[in-house]
């Protein structure tokens, strides 16, 4: 009995030790990032299927994070960040295109450091993402969402497989004096509804409201969208998708043709799935006709500025030296 008591005592002692360095927690570092100066950093990503995945270290754990503009906040995987880090329960559904998740434990990070950058008091949710780890056969520490990204101009570059984060002021102006060296060829305004980037596009002369989401592996088009739009959706096969809540849905996959945002910004056929977006629309808090994801970024090297509510585009280079 005495032995057990010592064990229990030791257990509590180690817990208090583990919590003693609380002040150091909450800083994130990107081990592979190139720091350009105090305002700008370039973080290489790898593609896991069609997810943009960066390597980072947080709370003494090193692993993968998905870059997800469709997610409202930072989400930490419960498998790796046990509940001792959480500061109590809150019933609040986290929303994101990965899917709707239930009752996440909310967690407030004291400090969130992107190497030299400091972001304080960001909210984060701790939820179980182990099914993504299983289905993608990857280690996943969490998801980096809107509330982390919004203070930066974000260049999502599927040519160089990297994300450039550049600090902006309240008006959305870049603090970095160095400009992009590649020419910005076009731009478009968007609307921000909650955390969702909304783009008004046109397909077959019909207005279509798209959400833009870096973590949408497949573009999506709503079943209930105008029939004229669906005329340009050419189905190819059935596909099974698994969302963040581990629910399987079968969808019709194909290509969506002739998506146009302006007279100068238009797209070649994009791999798209036909889905029922009504549940997703609850999460986004707005009615969307579709979601643009990986296929969008595959065709456009895109810079997102949340404060200016503007997207900028950089051309893919003409193939050289080949």
């Amino acid at each position: 009995m005495h032995k057990y008591f010592i064990c229990i005592l030791f257990y509590f002692f180690s817990i208090s030790l583990a919590n003693a360095d609380d002040d150091d927690e909450g800083s994130i570092t990107f081990s592979e990032a190139e720091i350009i100066n105090e305002f700008t950093t370039r973080i290489p990503f790898k593609l896991i299927d069609r997810l943009l995945v960066v390597e980072a270290e947080l709370l003494n754990k090193k692993g993968n994070f998905i870059i997800d503009t469709g997610s409202e906040s930072l989400i930490l995987n419960k498998t790796h960040f046990k509940t001792q880090y959480s500061r109590g329960k809150k019933s609040n559904a986290t929303s994101g295109v990965l899917d709707i998740v239930d009752n996440p434990l909310e967690k407030r990070l004291k400090q969130f450091v992107l190497k030299d950058f400091n972001i304080t008091n960001k909210m984060s949710d701790v939820i179980d993402l182990s099914h993504i780890e299983k289905s993608k056969k990857m280690n996943l520490l969490g998801i980096i969402g809107f509330n982390i990204l919004k203070d930066y101009e974000i260049f999502i570059d599927l040519h160089l497989n990297q994300i450039t984060l550049s600090k902006i002021d309240n008006q959305g102006n870049r603090l970095d004096k160095l400009q992009y060296l590649e020419k910005i060829t076009d731009s478009i305004n968007f609307f921000l509804k909650g955390h969702t980037i909304i783009l008004n596009g046109v397909v077959n002369n019909q207005k279509v409201k798209f959400g833009l989401d870096t973590a949408a592996e497949f573009n999506q088009i709503n079943k209930s969208v105008n029939k004229k739009v669906l005329k340009y959706f050419i189905p190819k096969k059935r596909l099974e998708l698994v969302g963040a809540s581990n629910k399987k849905i079968e969808v019709l996959a194909g290509k969506l043709h002739r998506v146009k945002l302006t007279e100068t910004i238009y797209f070649g056929p994009m791999y798209t799935v036909l889905t029922n977006l009504s549940r997703m629309n609850d999460a986004f808090g707005t009615n969307l006709d579709g979601i643009l994801g990986y296929a969008f970024f595959e065709q456009k090297r895109t810079i997102i500025n949340y404060k200016k509510e503007k997207l900028y585009f950089v051309n893919y280079p003409i193939k050289i030296n080949e």
Binding site: I35, L178, L181, N315, I320
Partner: peptide, 13 residues
Amino acid sequence: DPDNSVKEYDYDG
């Protein structure tokens, strides 16, 4: 490279 449009700054500018 004059034939390559893709350029970047390094840490030293």
